[in-house]
Structures are given as structure tokens and as C-alpha cells.
Design a protein around this nucleic acid. Structure first.
Length: 198
DNA sequence: ATGTCGATTTGCT
DNA sequence: GCAAATCGACATA
């Protein structure tokens, strides 16, 4: 038995707290991984956005709107919510909060770490492997089939690898101009990365 | 049944 | 910088 793990999968309790805004910030610096198609792929989360169900016009579950698509957001925190956007891109979110609290955090960008070769193949590129919410899904092999997947049991999960976050920047969310005043909320969080020299 | 539009990416002007 | 690509979810009739 190892005395200490270097990497710890985030526990259910991390996800079931009620503030998606807090969780969105705390997910920065954690590592998102997938084991789909036989290869582990993923990287450190560097950009997220919070969506808070009932009172957030930008959220698909605004006013607790329940549809087959949004149903998973009403489930327990720690599950995946994946949907198709613009007819061609899958976007990956982590459901947060307890049952009946339709909050979620959109994973917008990663720093590629694991399975870079496989991610390059899936993206058919060498660069910008996981630089946006659509590309993250493509690189990790995530599709709508994974909506509802449990991050504590399924092929997608998040680990704490001990990275210490120094500076978080907050800004308005992207692509939600239709949300009126809620479009101004500073619920997009990015990790300010120092220059990393080897 | 039909029309509108999106939590985006990419390539071309 | 702009617009096409592309389709399912949702609203309206």
C-alpha cells in the first residue's frame, strides 16, 4: 500500500456544495482526465464558467426549466452535463450542488498534459488541442453519450495533483449576450499562468 | 409541422 | 475581422 497518493480524485463532497461560482474557481488548477478509447487524455483546467440554474438567464435550466436535455443538471453534483452547441460542438460541464439544484460549471480550456499524441490525433492538429470548450471535448473524446456520466465512477474524472493556484482572473462569460443583465456577471474564471521555463 | 437560434471553431478576405 | 458550417432543442401554431 502506498502511504500517500500524489493525485487524488475529487470526492463527491467537492461537487455537492451549493455555489457553482465557488466551485468554478476551485476547479482551476485541477486536472480533468478521460479514459475513452483506451487512452488517458486530459490536462490542467485553466478556464471555467459558472451557471447557476434558476436565477441565471444564461443557464439552460433558467427558472428550473426541466427538459430531457437539462434533466441531468437537476441530479446530484459530480455528474457530466454534455450538450451539442451550434450543431457541431459538444460542450462539457460538471453538474454541481445537491439534487434539484441545477447548477453547472462549463470547462472552457485545459493545459494539455496526458495523452497529447492521442489528443493531436483526435484534433488532427498539433496546436490548440484544448484551448476552447468545443476543442476540449474533441481532444478528450467526450460526446453527448457521456452526459449523465458520474465523475466518481465513469471514464471522465477530475484529480487534485497538488498544483497551487496563485492568481484567478474573473470576467464576463462568453457568447451569452442573450442573457441580458446576467451576461455582465463576472462568472468566467481563468488561471493566470506564469511563464513556465524548464 | 415548422422556424429560430445557439455556453463555437475555423478558414478565408 | 467576418461568416459559414450544421443539427437538435425548444417555442409556437
Amino acid at each position: 500500500m502506498k502511504l500517500r497518493k500524489r493525485s487524488i480524485k475529487l470526492p463527491r463532497e467537492f461537487y455537492t456544495r451549493s455555489s457553482a461560482v465557488s466551485i468554478a474557481q476551485e476547479l482551476l488548477g485541477k486536472t480533468l482526465l478521460s479514459a475513452i478509447g483506451g487512452t488517458i487524455t486530459g490536462g490542467m483546467i485553466i478556464e471555467t464558467e459558472a451557471y447557476e440554474g434558476p436565477h441565471d438567464r444564461a443557464c439552460h435550466a433558467y427558472q428550473n426549466r426541466r427538459t430531457p436535455r437539462t434533466e441531468v443538471m437537476f441530479g446530484m453534483g459530480g455528474h457530466a452535463y454534455v450538450y451539442l452547441c451550434y450543431g457541431m460542438h459538444c460542450l462539457f460541464n460538471i453538474v454541481t450542488g445537491p439534487q434539484e439544484t441545477a447548477h453547472a460549471v462549463l470547462i472552457r480550456a485545459l493545459l494539455p498534459e496526458e495523452g497529447i499524441e492521442e489528443m493531436s490525433k483526435r484534433r488532427n492538429k498539433m496546436t490548440n488541442l484544448t484551448s476552447g470548450p468545443g476543442t476540449v471535448c474533441q481532444a478528450l473524446g467526450i460526446t453527448r453519450r457521456h452526459s449523465g456520466s458520474d465523475l466518481l465512477q465513469g471514464p471522465i474524472w477530475v484529480e487534485d495533483r497538488g498544483f497551487t493556484v496563485q492568481t484567478i482572473e474573473a470576467s464576463p462569460r462568453i457568447g451569452i449576450d442573450y442573457a441580458g443583465a446576467d451576461a455582465l456577471l463576472p462568472w468566467r474564471f481563468t488561471l493566470a499562468l506564469e511563464k513556465e521555463k524548464t
